[in-house]
Design a protein around this nucleic acid. Structure first.
Lengths: 408, 408
DNA sequence: CGCATTTGTTAAAACATCTAACAAATTAGG
DNA sequence: CCTAATTTGTTAGATGTTTTAACAAATGCG
């Protein structure tokens, strides 16, 4: 039951019904391809005539293409299969991180083309845009020379005003109220440019991925644990944006208001317990109180190193991971109680130790989840190798073509 | 950008466009009444011809009625005003609370008819339904004899499965997995019966209230502070339900995981800091350590009594309220960071002391809100005299007629 | 080969929005 | 009082949908 907003509604016009049905057909072609017109008619519970019209239009718009004829072992005319048409144009996905920036080129349906490239992130916005322009053009000329770029998606580790293209606050990059959209438009000309917070983009990447098991969840949360904690919430197939596009900041919901100081200025945020720096400082803090000699430079010691040590039976490393696991679970319980999603995805370097930490995470969730059902929530692990941020950035460009039209 | 769910979509049929536009027209009549067809056409940015057809259909369905002719001081034919037709049928709103149950009768657009009645709540479900049947029939015969009852809305202080009508867990009533829908249907026959959690219902009541200032917010949170803490979240005009209809339980998000024990079994939940019992025990705890004689029976001492004492310069009462105010604000900051709503509504007995506690609440919010904008959030106080729970219960019955049709 | 069966298209019916014209009702102003 | 101007609300027809029904095309089976 959704209330119509009397100050922002959208009237149905002659073309609205067709628009809706075309998007449904496109969605089903995307999730069921290869698929024939007749099969589509059965899936949509409508007549084949209607499908003919809809598909003809999708063919004209080059969103869909006809492929080989199917070969079913029954009588009757063979079906002509329909596929998404990926050759139309190209999307550029950019993942801006504190140390390096990553670029991925995809086709118009988000499939990776060529290799992912990366280069050092210049922290001055102007320099960053300049070097980015160089790298993007180089990548495009190597991977897809002469292709039409449909749009670019940027993922930023911080708060972003999705509409104005202003980076409100990205502590890792030391950017505050930086208008990135303007210099980017100057550099790349008149192509669509989308900016989004990394947690939200990761959530998008999961929603728009067609899973092999055909699962299609429209209520999920993505938690990305890294230098900070990014969270993206999807409700009813739509990213939860909030009034200022800052919704989803569960990383700064406290575990204990008197806990350790957080980068945001407050105390005891979830992030201050489970971010990679927090886990590392827990490890070294304890080590140092034990006055053990440090064999490596602390500054270069990463969470991956800690996980390796934990696997080789460094009990202190294991303890540090277990603590993080427990705090991770306690915070997840807050999200579960607050949002009650169908599934939670977890990304970040920590996932490489999932086999070690899962039992502790599960125990902590059960400790605070309000009901047994909530405690048994499905958790999906997204390894770094799946590049959720880059795929989310690509989805910013490629997904709108498949989205439901705004109506009522 | 909303993703279409490939396993639960709704095709547009011939009637879909009309259905959408009819609901938009109905919504605008509701928010702008009295309003003429011509004015409606301007509001909807469509032609008058279309409006004629839509309104004729609404008139036939008796959702709308024509009223007196308008009197504008300009040339031209006088407009015939349109109004919502409230005489169609009747809704029964029921607010089930630990000690007493309240009944309100409303017309089909949620306006109160007659007086609100109440009776002691029997904690055995069968006895409860029996006495409820008696009281409802009595109220109906007094207030609206012979009227057709369109439906009944029940508000329960606990978790409810909105679809099956099962009360999953209502600690205050000591109900666990109680199927209320079945005995209610036996008692009242074949009328629509809706059950909902009190926090969600209160949020609904705010969404569907037409405010005098014309404000129409579709992203709000309602926080109800009473024996427990109930929270309802509305995003994009729709209640956030979650997979198990338990979303919104911010009352059990912790302020400190090692804090005071909560009725849910965990420690340090927000509820354990700000519920009325928590505030009272803070007051008496401190009083008792000071070994002051107690002039009243603690068991009968309510939060209202405490507020009266605070107003008469009982410094300990004031301190207890200020502590609660601070914790209230800290928890609100979590909601603000997580949801970023346009407005937060606060209900419950505590609101009677809002002038005392507001500055402390505001300070605490600013302490943990991630941005300045978030710290300046609009807060609305809903006094008990507005009966948000009963109005929410009524909305469960009356609102669906105005909701957007499900599409795509 | 003829028949059954499936796929995909086409023609026409039914039903929307939308444009344009028109009737009805009222005021302004000589 | 009368006419022109103006606004409201309806109607007729144009256009663009979905939907039904019929049909052509393609294929396997006996």
């Amino acid at each position: 039951m959704r209330k119509i907003n009397p100050k922002d509604f959208k009237l149905a016009t002659r073309g609205t019904s067709r628009g809706i049905n075309k998007q449904i057909a496109l969605t089903l072609i995307r999730t069921h391809q290869p698929v024939s017109r007749a099969e589509l008619a059965r899936l949509m519970e409508t007549n084949r005539a209607n499908i003919t019209f809809l598909v003809n239009e999708l063919l004209e718009e080059k969103l869909v293409r006809e492929g080989a004829q199917g070969n079913q072992k029954i009588r009757g005319r063979k079906p002509t299969f329909l596929y998404l048409n990926s050759q139309k144009s190209i999307a550029v996905a950019v993942d801006v991180r504190a140390s390096r920036t990553f670029i991925m080129i995809t086709d118009s349906i988000g499939k990776q083309i060529g290799e992912i490239v990366n280069f050092p992130t210049a922290l001055e916005p102007d320099k960053f845009v300049q070097s980015l322009g160089h790298e993007v053009r180089k990548a495009l000329s190597e991977v897809a020379p002469g292709a039409i770029v449909d749009g670019m998606g940027f993922v930023i580790p911080g708060m972003v005003d999705h509409n104005s293209g202003v980076v409100l606050h990205a502590p890792a990059l030391k950017w505050k109220n930086v208008n990135l959209l303007e210099p980017l438009q100057q550099e790349f000309g008149a192509i669509d440019i989308h900016l989004e917070n990394s947690g939200k983009a990761c959530a998008l990447s999961q929603i728009w991925t067609t899973h092999s098991d055909g699962s299609a969840l429209n209520d999920i949360v993505f938690v990305s644990v890294s230098d900070g904690v990014g969270v993206g919430v999807v409700i009813n197939g739509e990213i939860m944006r909030g009034k200022h596009n800052t919704a989803g900041e569960f990383g700064h919901v406290p575990l204990s208001i008197d806990g350790p100081p957080c980068s945001c200025g407050a105390n005891g945020c979830w992030e201050a317990y489970i971010s990679n720096p927090a886990t590392l400082s827990r490890y070294f803090g304890r080590s140092m109180t034990n006055r053990q000699p440090q064999s490596v430079d602390i500054a270069d010691f990463t969470i991956e190193d800690l996980i390796i040590r934990a696997r080789s039976n460094d009990s202190k490393a294991l303890t540090a991971l277990h603590s993080t696991a427990r705090y991770l679970g306690l915070g997840l319980a807050s999200i579960i109680n607050a949002v009650d999603p169908s599934r939670i995805y977890i990304g970040g370097e920590l996932t490489e130790a999932w086999d070690i930490i899962e039992p502790h995470v599960r125990d902590a969730i059960k400790e605070r989840a309000l009901t047994g059902d909530l405690g048994r929530i499905s958790i999906g692990i997204v390894p770094a190798g799946e590049y959720p941020r880059l795929r989310g950035a690509a989805a910013l460009v490629t997904a709108p073509a498949f989205a439901a039209p705004k109506v009522a």
